[in-house]
Amino acid sequence: MTLFAQQFVNGIALGSVYALVALGLTLVYGVLKVPNFAHGALYMAGAYVVYVMLTAVGGSYALAIAVAVVVIAVMGAAMEFVVFRRLEGKSSVHAMIAALGVLFFLEGTADVIWGPDFRPVPTPLDGVVTAFGINITEQRILVIVAAIVAMAGLYFLLKRTLVGMSIEAMAQDREGALLVGIDTRRVALITFAISGALAAIAGALIAPLVLVFPTMGAVIILKAFVIVILGGMGSVPGAILGGYLLALAETMAGTYVAFAFSELIAFALLVLVLVFRPTGLFQKGV
């Protein structure tokens, strides 16, 4: 029972990161209608910003996270402004190929700057909290809490602000949004910035728990795709729920079945969902 509780908490921490990455992906899918293959690179870039802040620049971990959020949000917006804006109205294949171009540009740039080595990030919160017989590192508690705060912030933004409502309107019907006077280009720009900020938070939170390297986004982006397909492309609650569920499934399979098996769960789920229900489990009737 203790083992289960322990792994449950670990799964929730991992799920927080998955959910944050998947949220950014699903938001951009909503407005662009194209899977952003470069999204994992934003997550990677966020982790590198924290690495640079904590090893070279100095300052607190909170400052490092804030800088990462701002830098990657600008990067996300630049991606929309420089690349995807120019592909409006062209076939989705073009936008997908352009996204791959962005992905390899960002990975290649990180590789040129920092090399392919795996780099450890100093752990700012190295304490361990023990409660009910389970040990949780402070960093994992921060991951769980910060993710919930970020999601609450996103929810507030989407439901209570004009910008957020414009994003939802555009995701539902681009032309309709244009007709009622929404500046769709501005909304697309903001959506990419938010998506970048979410990826940066995920990368910044995970950085002290893992090693940072140029292709670190490759695995998580695939999982984020699985989550987003599972939850329905463009669905915000689907991305959150899917993120926690996939992480819990992986953690439990790794604990009770075999570690190698946990890696295959995402792929197995993807195959099953696409074969039996390609529109996702929670797809709204849009």
Binding site: V83, R86, L87, K90, H94, I97, A98, L100, G101, V102, L103, F104, F105, L106, E107, G108, T109, D111, V112
Partner: peptide, 20 residues
């Protein structure tokens, strides 16, 4: 060689945007 991806990425984008 180490700049390959860094250069080919933008070239791919330019091709898709301007010379599909």
């Amino acid at each position: 060689q180490e700049y390959t991806l860094m250069i080919l990425g933008p070239i791919l984008i330019l091709v898709v945007v301007f010379f599909p």
